[in-house]
Every structure is written in C-alpha cells, then in structure tokens.
Simulated scan of single mutants.
Amino acid sequence: MKTKRPGPRYADIWLPAVVAGLLAIGLSIWGATHQGSDGEAGPSPSAGAPPSPTQSSSATPTEPSGSPSVEPVADARTRLREALARWQQADTGAFTQTSVIPGIGKLTLEGVYRLSTRSSEVTQVFTGEDDEAVEIRFLGSQGDTYLNSPDWERALRPCWMRIDARTLSESTGISIVNGAGSLPANVVALSRARALRADQSDPEVVVGTVRLVDVAPLFGSRLVNALRDATLDVPVPAEFRLVDGEIVGWRVSGRSMAAVLGSEEALAEPDGVLLAAVASYDAVIEYDELGAAVPDVRPPAPGLRMTPAQARSGAGCPAAQ
C-alpha cells in the first residue's frame, strides 16, 4: 500500500508545474503577443471579430489522417469562420484539456474563461503513473496570472504567486518573453485557427491548422524553450469538431506536431528525445457551456500575494505570516 507523502514545498511544485504544462494554462506568452511574420497579426480573442481564413504562413502542413473531402475549401473555411464568430460572441465558456503521456501520467486542465476581460480560472491536475496527483490552481485577469496549490506546505497554501515575464524567463530560459497571458493557451490558439478542408469520413470535423507559436505551450515549456524564432508562424495540423455550427472541441496530434517540428527544423538544436516525447501524446480540448455565466475572476487580495522569493524561502504571503 502506498504511503502518503508529505505536501511538497515550492520547489517540488514549481518544476513539475512547468514541465507538465504550466505554459498550457494561461501563459501562452508568444501566442498572445507575437505578430505574424507577414505583418498581419492574428486577432485577439477579445477583439470581437472572427479570424480571417487566410493562412498566416506559406508553409504546407502535414495534414492529420482522414479521407479527403469533397466539400469545397471555401465551404469548410466558412463553417469554421462562422463557428469561431459565434464562439467569440458567446464570450464565456468552460473547457477540459487532456493529455495522456505514456510512461509519465495524465495531465488534465478544467477551467472557465471570459474573452472580453481576458480572464480565466483553471485547475490543473497531473497524475503520475506511480505517484499521487498534484493539483495547481490558476487565476488569470487582464494579463496577470497567479498560481496556488493545495499540495504546498501549510504555510504557503493560502498564498498566490504571480507569474510574470521575469519568472517565466527564469523558469524556461525564454529571453524574448514580454508578458504572460491570462487566457488559457488552448483558447488563444483556437482564436487564430484556420480551415483547410472538411473531413469526408466525419461531417462534424473540419481539418485545419493552428500556429506553432500558439499550440507549443500545450506540449510543455521544454518545447517552447527549444523553438527557433523564425518558425513561430509555421502552421500545425489540427482537427476542429463543429456540432450545429458551434465549436465543441479540437485536437492536435503529437505525431503531426513532431512532423512539423522536424520538417521545418523548428528546434534551435536537434533533439530526437524531445521530438519522440512530443509525438507520444495528443492534446485534446473540449468546450462546454458557451455563453453561460462564469465567475468574475479578480486578482487575489494584496495580502494573499507572494513573490517567487517569498515562496522559495517559505515566508509566504503577508496574510500567512
């Protein structure tokens, strides 16, 4: 029988959070700020206008498996564009993001978001195959993201640590970071989705692309750290599921992601181990409750905020002292 281990300190939580997908929560740092290489910026999720169906890169992605469609490309683009418009007009929603990583464990994110205020509330649970679950909670509001974990030692549990550009840079090695987003990465990536064609084998599926810069956070900080700037706008194949004209989910295959990374020489240095890890699992996102009322997410009270230094030292936030 397993014995329950004591609650981990800050260092024990911070590293797994980053490695397991911290950037996938609300720190899609490039996706929220980076301009397309052709001079056309992708639309903000709160801009209120649907994304243009025009590809932001001339690269031809490797499409997900599936039967070629007889539906005209323009029709598929229209379906996705109109679905994205309804999704943005709904403004709010809930999502579940799941990745099963062979030999490592399962990463599940559940949360709600509001596009107009760029706010979100997310719970991430990472369950290792031979370990207990580690839970991390995130609050995102107007560009700021705070994290907290019930698995921290008792003195730190009431506290929330703000994740800013410097913290991200120190944790991931990314020197070009210029801000942390407060919307989940899957939401940012979806807002810039492009359609290629319909899937003839499944009328609910539109095959398209998302930008590498937007989808990379779903595969963890190690991948984000390894990307070359010149490849950030490369399109990555994705499949979008539409039911009654509404987006109910989308997925990106790890194999397709790895194929793009390899063919575009997107990594700063060749890394076969990293490519194999990315190829071993998919990121699957499901949306629900579009337009439903969601909590008004606000930053934690000043007395509950702590810096990374306070977390490392165990001092915690003022309210815990």
Results as ranks from 00 to 15, higher is better:
residue 82 E to P: 00
residue 306 M to S: 07
residue 242 L to N: 04
residue 6 P to F: 10
residue 66 G to M: 12
residue 32 A to R: 02
residue 31 G to D: 04
residue 110 E to C: 10
residue 121 E to A: 14
residue 303 G to Q: 12
residue 154 R to S: 15
residue 158 P to A: 09
residue 299 P to R: 03
residue 175 S to Q: 11
residue 289 E to C: 05
residue 140 G to R: 13
residue 187 V to D: 09
residue 202 D to M: 02
residue 253 S to H: 11
residue 9 R to H: 10
residue 13 I to L: 04
residue 275 L to D: 11
residue 58 S to R: 12
residue 102 P to W: 09
residue 205 V to E: 06
residue 114 R to A: 15
residue 317 C to M: 06
residue 191 S to N: 05
residue 254 G to Q: 04
residue 173 G to E: 01
residue 241 R to C: 11
residue 149 S to I: 02
residue 239 E to C: 09
residue 107 L to D: 15
residue 316 G to E: 08
residue 184 P to H: 06
residue 139 L to T: 12
residue 318 P to Q: 11
residue 71 E to Q: 13
residue 278 V to P: 15
residue 77 R to K: 03
residue 193 A to G: 04
residue 161 M to I: 07
residue 294 V to L: 07
residue 168 L to G: 13
residue 10 Y to E: 11
residue 151 D to L: 01
residue 304 L to Y: 02
residue 122 V to Q: 15
residue 44 S to Y: 00
residue 5 R to W: 00
residue 313 S to R: 11
residue 43 P to K: 01
residue 151 D to T: 00
residue 171 S to K: 06
residue 320 A to E: 07
residue 75 D to F: 02
residue 310 Q to P: 03
residue 225 N to Y: 02
residue 67 S to Q: 10
residue 138 F to S: 15
residue 154 R to M: 13
residue 145 T to V: 14
residue 249 G to Y: 13
residue 236 V to A: 10
residue 81 R to P: 00
residue 47 A to N: 04
residue 216 A to L: 06
residue 296 D to T: 10
residue 175 S to W: 01
residue 133 A to K: 09
residue 205 V to N: 05
residue 277 A to D: 13
residue 227 L to A: 04
residue 124 Q to L: 12
residue 215 V to A: 10
residue 277 A to H: 13
residue 260 V to G: 14
residue 203 P to Y: 00
residue 171 S to Y: 03
residue 143 G to C: 11
residue 264 E to V: 14
residue 173 G to T: 03
residue 154 R to V: 15
residue 33 T to W: 00
residue 107 L to Y: 08
residue 252 V to K: 12
residue 34 H to G: 00
residue 279 A to Y: 07
residue 158 P to Q: 06
residue 226 A to L: 06
residue 23 L to W: 00
residue 101 I to D: 12
residue 239 E to Y: 01
residue 264 E to G: 11
